[in-house]
Amino acid sequence: MKPCSTCLSYTLMFLNYVQAFNGVSILIYSLWILTCWSTQQNEGASWFVWFAFGVGVSVCLIAFIGYVSAEVTNGCCLCFYALFTSILIVSEAALVCDIILNKQWEKDFPRDHTGELQRLRQFIEANIDICKWFATVVFAIQMLSIMLAMILRLMARSKRVNTGRHEDYDAIRKPLLNQLDAPIASTSLGNEKIPTKTWRSAMKDKLGWAKNQSSDEAIV
């Protein structure tokens, strides 16, 4: 059980490394846009820049939680990691569905003053096959991470339950063992220890010898 749990933990940590790389890439992209926009314009950055920055930070935080959870194999941390990853997947799925089903999806968002949203759209349309494969890989990594987190949580829970049962079993057995060892109790005679049964038999023999001696004196 332990080697299997260790293997799953290392796999989950590796998957979180990949997700952290994606988050850092989004952060670098958003900071690059912010730097270029700040040097060209005096206005504040567009919402798209801050949105990309927030997505990058969120992905990095979730990956960090997943890495720590896989390292310590804590059930509570694994549960929170699975919950946050599920929320991220649902948000991504809602965004993709809106873009696919709604042909006028750009009107649902405020105007991007930097123009990066339009350039990003043109890049995706020009490399649609690569983007599809990339999105599929990211989605598969996130789903596999959730599955591994749930498996590790169940394994940690079963291990904790089995440990508690063994402790209760040992606590029940201990008095019985003490009772079995009870006849070993001894009585000291001088500097020597004589078991209880031997002491009793010695006393009976002594009392019997005293009675026989008294009866012989009476006959005389």
Rank of each mutant, 00 (worst) to 15 (best):
M1Q: 05
M1T: 03
P3D: 00
C4S: 13
T6C: 15
L8Y: 03
S9G: 02
S9F: 01
S9H: 07
Y10V: 07
L12W: 04
F14H: 12
F14L: 01
F14T: 06
N16K: 00
Y17T: 06
V18P: 01
F21N: 12
S25C: 11
I26T: 14
I33A: 01
I33T: 04
T35I: 07
W37N: 12
Q41I: 15
N42L: 04
N42D: 02
E43S: 14
F48N: 06
F48I: 00
W50I: 13
F51Y: 13
A52V: 14
A52F: 10
F53K: 00
G56K: 01
V57E: 13
S58F: 06
C60R: 03
L61N: 03
I62F: 07
A63M: 04
F64L: 14
I65K: 04
S69W: 04
A70H: 04
A70E: 00
N74V: 03
F80Q: 11
F80W: 08
Y81R: 08
L83I: 15
T85D: 05
I87C: 10
I89D: 02
V90T: 05
E92K: 07
E92G: 11
A93C: 03
L95V: 11
V96S: 12
C97M: 14
D98M: 05
I100C: 00
I100A: 03
N102C: 07
F109E: 08
R111A: 10
D112A: 06
Q118F: 00
Q118A: 15
Q122I: 10
F123A: 11
F123E: 09
F123Q: 06
E125H: 11
N127I: 00
N127V: 05
I128C: 07
I128V: 13
D129L: 14
W133C: 07
W133T: 02
V137W: 14
F139P: 09
A140Q: 01
Q142H: 03
L144W: 10
L148I: 07
L148R: 01
A149I: 06
L154E: 11
R157H: 09
S158D: 10
K159D: 14
H166G: 05
D168S: 14
I172S: 08
I172W: 08
R173L: 13
P175N: 03
P175M: 00
P175A: 02
Q179L: 13
Q179M: 15
D181T: 12
D181R: 13
P183E: 00
I184L: 14
I184H: 05
N191W: 08
N191M: 05
N191C: 04
K193H: 06
K193C: 10
P195K: 09
P195L: 03
P195M: 03
W199P: 06
R200A: 12
S201Q: 14
A202I: 08
L207E: 11
G208D: 13
G208N: 08
W209V: 15
A210W: 07
N212E: 11
Q213H: 08
Q213G: 07
